Simulated assay, not measured.
Amino acid sequence: MASFISSKNWALGKRRIAKKWREASPFWDWLTTGVVILNQRGEVDYANTTAQDLLELSVLQLGEKPFVQHFISEEQLTKVLAEVRQESYAIHRLLFNLQKIGRPEPLPTLLTVSSILETDSVLLEFVTAEQQLRLDREERTLEQSQANKELIRNLAHEIKNPLGGIRGAAQLLESELTNPELTEYTQVIIKESARLQSLVDRLLAPHRKPRIIGDVNIHEICERVRSVLLAQYPKQIHIIRDYDISIPEFRGDNEQLIQALLNVAQNAAQVLADFSPQALPGYQATITFRTRIARQITIARHRYKLALELHIIDNGPGIPVDLIDKIFLPLVSGREGGSGLGLTLTQTFIQQHDGMIECVSEPGYTDFKILIPLP
């Protein structure tokens, strides 16, 4: 097309198009899809934030050389771009293993390549298979969490009413007994009723206790949790702090977030304390607190421009495969003597901040990732 237009008019037209793309950039940046626009020479005229994050290349880095030269699969990309340019308004969709030069593994990507009307430019759209799987997994987790909350509330109320009657009856019975040996049995009833009452109260606590909203500094919360762990395990656990100090404060409930992080970190510390004596010589039980800013994040079907990304990572034995999909369910515990409520409460507290928590684990590496929207 450019051959039928004077070079001056073509340059003016291209500048007008580029200006429109720049003016539209705030809208492009809200897309969950990575968008890259290439000019007739195969150079990047525009790349939205999602594309830069996905490709791990800034606009300046993308502009250093033609787009295809950033990737090992340069020939395949060049062929696809040529086919689109030769066929007017053609659209190609393909599952593409995007492997950047210097990257150890390819990234499976659904790539859509299309020509842009009345220009020699080409539009590339990237959606990673991993991204789609994460969105599907997040939606299932949200639905499961909502069902769990209803089940817990209904079950706790059904248990609480007869439990009070059982405990009261045992206390009345004990007052009528003349044989001290028989009071041992009534004490068992009273103590077990009290234990169950405490369990029910913990199940209902997140829904009863009013939230106290204030300014939250996530690093102050991490330091608070760190000090608790060091007091409990002064020699067994090494704690690494990897903070992004540019993360701004946000509105939230400090006590809830402290408890949420403490539940996760204490679980890791307890497992590490038991695991480290049996580990290889030179092994150092380690927990890492890592904070970052995530961009263009979808949480519970809502899109957020910025979010806090907090990782709590340990190098313990990992979570058993048969438990990894159940760890946030109530009354499920992988530790003897555990109540199975800690991670359930953590998930509830994080969701009350419009956030989400997920976990990946393998032997030697367990990562709990928390995402909370930022202003």
Score class of each variant (00 low, 15 high):
residue 4 F to D: 08
residue 14 K to P: 01
residue 18 A to M: 13
residue 18 A to F: 13
residue 19 K to N: 12
residue 20 K to L: 15
residue 20 K to D: 10
residue 22 R to E: 13
residue 26 P to Y: 04
residue 27 F to R: 08
residue 27 F to C: 08
residue 31 L to T: 11
residue 36 V to Q: 01
residue 40 Q to H: 14
residue 43 E to G: 05
residue 45 D to K: 05
residue 46 Y to F: 15
residue 48 N to M: 00
residue 49 T to W: 06
residue 50 T to C: 08
residue 51 A to L: 07
residue 51 A to E: 02
residue 53 D to F: 10
residue 62 L to C: 03
residue 68 V to P: 00
residue 70 H to P: 04
residue 70 H to L: 00
residue 72 I to A: 03
residue 82 A to P: 00
residue 87 E to S: 14
residue 90 A to H: 12
residue 99 Q to Y: 04
residue 106 P to L: 08
residue 107 L to D: 01
residue 108 P to K: 07
residue 108 P to V: 09
residue 109 T to Q: 02
residue 112 T to R: 11
residue 117 L to Q: 13
residue 119 T to E: 04
residue 124 L to G: 02
residue 124 L to M: 10
residue 127 V to W: 00
residue 137 R to W: 08
residue 138 E to W: 09
residue 139 E to Y: 11
residue 144 Q to H: 10
residue 144 Q to S: 13
residue 153 R to S: 09
residue 153 R to K: 15
residue 155 L to I: 06
residue 157 H to G: 05
residue 162 P to M: 09
residue 162 P to D: 03
residue 163 L to N: 12
residue 169 A to T: 14
residue 169 A to S: 15
residue 172 L to V: 11
residue 175 S to I: 11
residue 175 S to Q: 14
residue 180 P to V: 15
residue 181 E to K: 14
residue 187 Q to E: 15
residue 190 I to E: 02
residue 194 A to Y: 10
residue 195 R to L: 13
residue 197 Q to E: 14
residue 202 R to I: 06
residue 208 R to C: 06
residue 209 K to L: 13
residue 218 I to S: 02
residue 222 C to I: 13
residue 224 R to L: 07
residue 225 V to C: 03
residue 226 R to Q: 12
residue 226 R to H: 14
residue 227 S to Q: 13
residue 229 L to E: 02
residue 230 L to F: 05
residue 234 P to C: 05
residue 236 Q to K: 11
residue 238 H to M: 08
residue 239 I to D: 01
residue 243 Y to L: 07
residue 244 D to T: 06
residue 246 S to A: 10
residue 251 R to L: 12
residue 253 D to G: 03
residue 256 Q to Y: 03
residue 260 A to W: 01
residue 260 A to M: 10
residue 262 L to S: 05
residue 265 A to S: 09
residue 275 F to G: 02
residue 276 S to M: 13
residue 281 P to D: 06
residue 285 A to Y: 04
residue 290 R to K: 15
residue 291 T to H: 09
residue 294 A to H: 10
residue 296 Q to Y: 05
residue 301 R to V: 02
residue 306 L to N: 14
residue 311 H to R: 07
residue 314 D to L: 09
residue 317 P to Q: 07
residue 318 G to M: 08
residue 320 P to L: 09
residue 320 P to I: 09
residue 321 V to W: 02
residue 326 K to P: 01
residue 330 P to Q: 08
residue 332 V to T: 05
residue 338 G to S: 09
residue 338 G to F: 09
residue 346 T to H: 04
residue 348 T to A: 08
residue 349 F to W: 09
residue 362 E to R: 14
residue 365 Y to H: 10
residue 367 D to P: 07
residue 371 L to N: 00
residue 372 I to C: 01
residue 374 L to C: 06
residue 374 L to I: 06
